[in-house]
């Protein structure tokens, strides 16, 4: 198994290098000259000379390979450059914003897992009954409503009308409930179907009949025999949904006035603050790659066939 993990790690590193190149290439090829923008910020109607000066200052006149190398070197040391708009270092800004985005996405994922198992088992325990129908309807609604709409509904219903939770902020657990629900509902809906359908398929397989012949109740078969069999599929789907949630943060963070990485990214895009965009993209891509690595390793741990491959390889 350790061999397999080593292979996955190596692949992740290769991907990460490719990702940094992509980040860099995106920003370099983006329309508009950064030097012009900065020079004009300093003096309106900047002369060609002034623009040249800025280019030299930022190292933009150097060859692309050198620029990439120096940027990568800086990024490795936590130095992601300076925001064109504010003049602040991007590294520390990201560091202070990362925990907020992490809290949002990880909490949302936990909520999604909880809800998806609750809904999935509700359906699988009593197939064709009321609980099954309810779980199906919630899944359909959750999967078809965009998160800005869900967020608005939740804010209106639970925060404004009922006053159960604050509408924004990061003070205490209660302020996180609505963002978690907003970002977690869509993944929960998709994952609940993965659980429901996966359990149903597992229950139709011959080993479920064996378990029944052992004298286990339907509930025990679902939990002890069917559940371990859907784990790899579930982890895979969870990884895909986790990626979608990072993207979803771009919508949810502004909605709840959360100052996270996605919020910074959005500001960067709006102000054409390319250094910020580049840094945020790097964070996103790194998180995707890490997520996939975790999914691969998680599947290895839950699928006995994958687990033993490393030993034989």
């Amino acid at each position: 198994m350790s061999t397999l993990i080593a292979i996955r790690l190596r692949n992740a590193v290769v991907l990460l290098v490719l990702a940094t190149m992509l980040c860099f290439a995106l920003v370099v090829s983006a329309p508009g000259n950064v030097a012009v923008l900065i020079a004009e910020l300093r003096t309106p109607k900047a002369s060609f000379e002034q623009i040249r000066l800025v280019e030299e200052e930022l190292g933009l006149n150097q060859p692309l390979v050198l620029r990439y190398a120096s940027w990568l070197n800086g990024a490795l040391h936590g130095n992601l450059g300076v925001s064109y708009k504010t003049g602040d270092a991007i590294g520390p800004a990201l560091a202070s914003r990362l925990p907020i985005t992490l809290t949002l996405v990880v909490g949302g994922a936990a909520f999604a897992m909880l809800l998806s198992f609750a809904l999935g088992f509700l359906g699988a325990l009593w197939p064709g009954r009321l609980g099954d129908a309810v779980s199906r309807v919630i899944a359909l609604l959750g999967a078809s409503m965009p998160s800005f709409f869900v967020g608005a509904l939740l804010i209106y219903g639970l925060a404004v009308e009922l006053g159960l939770f604050p509408t924004f902020g990061t003070a205490g657990l209660s302020s996180w409930v609505l963002p978690w629900m907003t970002i977690g509902l869509l993944p929960a809906a998709v994952l609940s179907r993965v659980v429901r359908v996966g359990l149903e398929e597992a229950m139709a397989r011959p080993f479920a009949l064996t378990a029944s012949a052992k004298g286990l109740s339907r509930r025990a078969i679902l939990f002890r025999h069917a559940l371990p069999n859907i784990a790899p599929t579930y982890i895979n789907a969870l990884g895909a949904q986790g990626g979608a949630m990072v993207v979803g943060a771009v919508v949810v963070e502004p909605l709840f006035a959360l100052k996270g990485v996605a919020d910074l990214f959005l500001q960067g895009v709006l102000f054409r603050d390319f250094m910020v965009v580049q840094a945020c993209l790097l964070v996103f891509l790194t998180s995707f790659i890490l997520l996939n690595l975790m999914v691969d390793i998680g599947m290895m741990f839950t699928d006995p066939k994958l687990r033993r491959q490393g030993a034989n390889a």
Binding site: P206, F207, L209, T210, A211, A213, P228, N229, D303, P304
Partner: peptide
């Protein structure tokens, strides 16, 4: 059962 491969739980 007839087919022990499918009758045993693979996980």
């Amino acid at each position: 059962f007839q087919d022990p491969m499918s009758a045993l739980n693979p996980a």
